[in-house]
Design a protein around this nucleic acid. Sequence first.
DNA 1: TGTACATCAGTGAACGCGCGTTCACTGATGTAC
DNA 2: TGTACATCAGTGAACGCGCGTTCACTGATGTAC
Lengths: 232, 232
Amino acid sequence: MSAVRTARDRARRELTEEILAAGRAQVAASGATSLSLRAVARELGMASSAVYRYFATRDELLTALIVEAYDALGEEVERAAEPRAGASRRDRWLAAARAVRGWALTHPHQYGLLYGSPVPGFHAAPERTNGPGSRVPLALLGIFAGAPEPRTPIAAPPPPLSPVLTDQARWVGALVSPAVPEDRVVRGAMAWTSVFGLVSFEVFGQLRGSFAPAEELFEHAIGRLADALDAP
Amino acid sequence: MSAVRTARDRARRELTEEILAAGRAQVAASGATSLSLRAVARELGMASSAVYRYFATRDELLTALIVEAYDALGEEVERAAEPRAGASRRDRWLAAARAVRGWALTHPHQYGLLYGSPVPGFHAAPERTNGPGSRVPLALLGIFAGAPEPRTPIAAPPPPLSPVLTDQARWVGALVSPAVPEDRVVRGAMAWTSVFGLVSFEVFGQLRGSFAPAEELFEHAIGRLADALDAP
DNA sequence: TGTACATCAGTGAACGCGCGTTCACTGATGTAC
DNA sequence: TGTACATCAGTGAACGCGCGTTCACTGATGTAC
């Protein structure tokens, strides 16, 4: 067991990567439902049975592709949300939201795989997808950790949270440190779901005939969401 | 061509309805991708080729099911959004939003068919789905036609709309009468996408481990959205 | 009211396709002595 | 450094399945005279 592995091992890693790449391309081209082991094998010029040396089943390959996609999106959003010199919280929020939209528009089928209707007859193992799937919400949450930076104070006080909602929000808020206060978590969740609602509508074609192309609506919306988030 | 049709005609109508019902049940049970003409025929105890007397192709059946689903949801939302004695705009908005969520939770697969990732290799004819698909947004828009009912005035003035966004919002606002002012349309669009973002996240399982069950988050969110909508 | 013809619904077999997965096998690569 | 054995990657054929769609057909229903 040396750090430098054998030729066999290197070949294995490479082929695994090639299989993933072919699967990724297939999902990108025609969606997750039509992902097929046989087509992947054909693409790589190997017998369909050979793929089974690398992924025990079609569902395993699909799970790996989901994890990959969550990680790809997560990485982009994390980078955008990162604290930077001269970047306010609002800037980071806007950048993160744009990263979500940008990735979704360039990878519509992978976006659909993650945030669209679940693939029928397939349930990804939660212990494999939960972590990667949490990267985006955690990155967004991280932006609002710590004290708020008030900008445009709102006259009306925010409506109180119900006890259940308070508990949920406290639990979520404690996932980052320093913990985010409950009302902020709830506002963040609303902003988070808004962004994905908007992006899903755009990617899945619901805005055709009204706000498509949705660039401007999106920009306006995330600006307003930022205003709401920045309130004390 | 009398109003009362022949026996053959009655039988045709009935069987068409039965085929739709079987298809609906199949979508409800396992999602749109696994809808199969053969399975529908099996369900009805007829030869698979017989279905072709009623629907020229699988895609036609799927289109019909999409139209049906849009109409079912549209009807519920329209009813909820209807002006009623003693019901404020806010009440109507809350009822409409709850109708969306309620329908989605009881028909998750049909909801996925309408608002999830598009079925691969299938494109519904826009001239058939556009009308039914507009019912929900138009119902929501209708709630806010005419003058606003200010409740909790917001200190900060709303951010101005870009020229493109103004045009889009004006066009959308003119779909109902009296026309809805641009800024209100944009706020409505944000509320609309928020509701569907929240519902999609809940139905597609993205809130597992944080805000699920999402009843309370949803109630809170639509309340806050109502506050924003009711601003002058 | 009865007959002749046209229309239509439903059948069953078939075509051609692609899929996931298994299995016995061969040949190459790795390992222990 | 060389040999003997164990491990593993990849093959090709096969199983069993379900699908959408077509086609020539039969028998029932509708229509015109």
